[in-house]
Design a protein around this nucleic acid. Sequence first.
RNA 1: GCGCCCAUAGCUCAGUGGAUAGAGCGUCUCCCUGCGGAGGAGAAGGCCGUAGGUUCGACUCCUACUGGGCGCACCA
Length: 527
Amino acid sequence: MLRKKVRKILKDAIGKEAELKHPGDAKFGDYSTNIALKEKIDAKEIVEKLKNEPMFEKVETAGPGFINLTISKQALLDELSEIIEKKENYGNSTIGQGKKIQVEFISANPTGPLTVGNARGGPYGDVLGNVFKKAGFEVEKAYYVNDAGQQILALGHSVLKDKEAKYQGEYIDELAGKIKERDPLKVGQLAAKRIINGYIKKTTGKLGIKYDEWIFESDLYQSGKVDKTLKFLEENGLIYEREGAKWFKSFQFGDERDRVVVKSDGEKTYLAGDIALHQYKFKDKKFDQVVNVWGADHHGDVAGLLAGAEALGHKGKLEIILLQFVTLLEKGEKKKMSKRAGVYVLMDELVDKVGSDAARWFFLQKSPETHLNFDIDLAKEQSSKNPVYYVQYAHARICSVLRKAGNVILSPFASLRINSAKDLSKDSSGFTLRMTNLNHPAELSLIRQLTKFPEIIEDTAGDYQVQRLPQYSLKLANTFHKFYENCRVIDDSDKKKTASRLSLAKAVQIVLASTLKLMGIGAPNKM
RNA sequence: GCGCCCAUAGCUCAGUGGAUAGAGCGUCUCCCUGCGGAGGAGAAGGCCGUAGGUUCGACUCCUACUGGGCGCACCA
């Protein structure tokens, strides 16, 4: 990883950690640092120290005290070789230090199929998990099923279509036809099971999401975990009674007020189950870190749960990411999504219409805290207009070139005779990459783009801004297309150049495919 | 009323203290006797919601305001 190497050089020279940025304009070099300003050191002194580093082609001061660094061509080519050697392992990081991390996402109530709104966390959480894995964490993905409480009763009534019915929709009719039971609670429990297995799992499966664990709230109750957790809190003096209810002292952990965990009628609240869930996550499953991805409508519950985790001795290990709401746009008009009013679009329908790749892309591209306007008309007509095809096209184009290169002999660089793209991916160690032929600005900027990939992984594993991935893949595809336009890859009269450019194309294929794989989006060989 | 989130090109959104604010779609003009034109080059389009403040430097941080979304249960 280039950035890491540059950081080390700077630290050895100055004795301080330096922040590195990619300047917006290429003329300012590959990295810039404001360390001279921050540490009040004369920038010229630092430049003097760095001048002879082989890593840099150019080191200069600029503006109000920046130091601009340009990576040498040799260092770029070394990095390129590394990509081809490491293949899909390029960009792997160890910052996770093998820590156990769980990402819990979607966790929509089992009272209906997934809508476009509550499925937003699907692609996001799934990809965040993938990034953690590549960054060196041991990752599990989980869905928490709230199959307890009065919503299940309400679901039962809905299926029975009696006066207390709350939910409506096609799925209710389907369930009504299949469930013979008459007791509302039992009907609700059976219906919830069917909704999870028949609807929700089907949709997450279509989206390519694989959960490691489905945790059922009802199991937490049956196994006594909820009672045990409450008892623990009680023994530690964190529970008191008022007006017949039991309250958890969340205020003393920073919540704006205390919260009820056992109602005056003896029923436990959602929070009681959720605190027990986190005792299970941290104590039983031994996660070092847990990230919960929630809808923004639950932000009022964040403080309560954080307090619960802290009370159990897991302070700082739980993070909650709130995804802002999805608003539907149809024919230019905004529609408020409401399950109860029957105004919603099912995720399943969307995936059927635009495909999993486009659906995932669409959700991933937006940052979590942005209110997502989902344009139904645009989604419907998304075909070649969708940016995801632009990226996939770049990949298919590379594959096409590599296929064609099957007739090109790569020697003198290759001891290996490459007959197909398959050979190239199978064994690239057979030829030495001496890419002295890569001089064209389009070639060099493409290599520069490739070297940013490991930074994307580490940065995203640190700040969860998953939209970096689609952004990056777009930029990389674009840089490749420019290279392709300017530099003919296969040239029978110049085998050296051909070998160099094929290697570069191969590296782009590797990184592009890695990025797409992280996003859970296909990397087609042909389109 | 209190709290959280958002406001950037015609539209959908990137950019989370640095140097001339970016992409896709839409509009307009060019580029195929050569590896995939689902591509490339270029143009037009912005007082980054408003007003203050902090800073050598603010789209970015702070305050107030305006407009929109979401919460404020012994529901989940």
